[in-house]
């Protein structure tokens, strides 16, 4: 699994629960190291082991932990760059949702060996969408659930989200957009330089 994903799990755990608990997780998972490198590729089983150990350590379901990870990735000021990259998707939440179809391609454009499962947005009625995450990265749907929730806050939109497991490893997220300008949201300036 790509180091960026492993590194995200590490940075989420360290920032939210502290370095000591991260060390406990890596030990429980039988890792011989405690620092993932963002630009290296790791064995799939390694990442699975870390997630399982994390779920045990926190005494929470893996899906809940992954949803929090998704929220963290967008809302934590330390990982501002991802939030900005997602905001490039559109000027409002609806446009952002439509841009998710391109997300795996956009990710590959930035990091050529980062393969994310295909995403497909369907609009069933005005303000009612479903996002299908294809199989390939178990738990990706849960992460996306957290991302969608946090991005709604970012755009100032009021949404109701529901997560269903689909067939053959696909996952489906139901999205109901109640109000697209519920709050002011966070500002987004195209030209800000990341230091």
């Amino acid at each position: 699994m790509h180091g960026l994903i492993n590194r995200s799990i590490q940075s989420f755990t360290c920032h939210t629960y502290g370095h000591a608990r991260w060390l406990a997780v890596t030990e429980a998972a039988g890792l011989n190291f405690s620092e993932f490198e963002a630009m290296l590729i790791y064995d799939e089983d390694l990442s699975r082991g870390v997630l399982t150990a994390l779920s045990v350590e926190l005494e929470r379901d893996v899906t809940d932990v992954l949803e929090d990870l998704g929220t963290f990735l967008v809302s934590n000021p330390n990982v501002e760059s991802l939030r900005r990259l997602l905001r490039f998707g559109g000027v409002n939440y609806t446009e952002f949702l439509h841009s998710l179809d391109d997300l795996p391609d956009r990710a590959r454009l930035a990091v050529s060996d980062l393969n994310l499962p295909a995403l497909e947005l369907r609009e069933h009625a005005a303000g009612h969408f479903s996002l299908t995450c294809q199989a390939g990265l178990q738990g990706f749907g849960s992460v996306m659930l957290g991302v969608l929730r946090a991005m709604a806050d970012d755009y100032g939109a009021l949404v109701v989200l529901a997560h269903y497991g689909g067939s053959n490893g696909t996952e489906v997220i139901d999205i109901t957009l109640i109000e697209s300008a519920w709050t002011e949201g966070r500002s987004f300036d195209l030209g800000t330089r990341i230091e």
Binding site: L109, A110, V111
Partner: peptide, 20 residues
Amino acid sequence: IELLYLVEAKSAAMEASRKL
């Protein structure tokens, strides 16, 4: 917009590589 996206994405990826 795609160009700006790419510049930011590449800078972030480059930064990660530089740290490594």
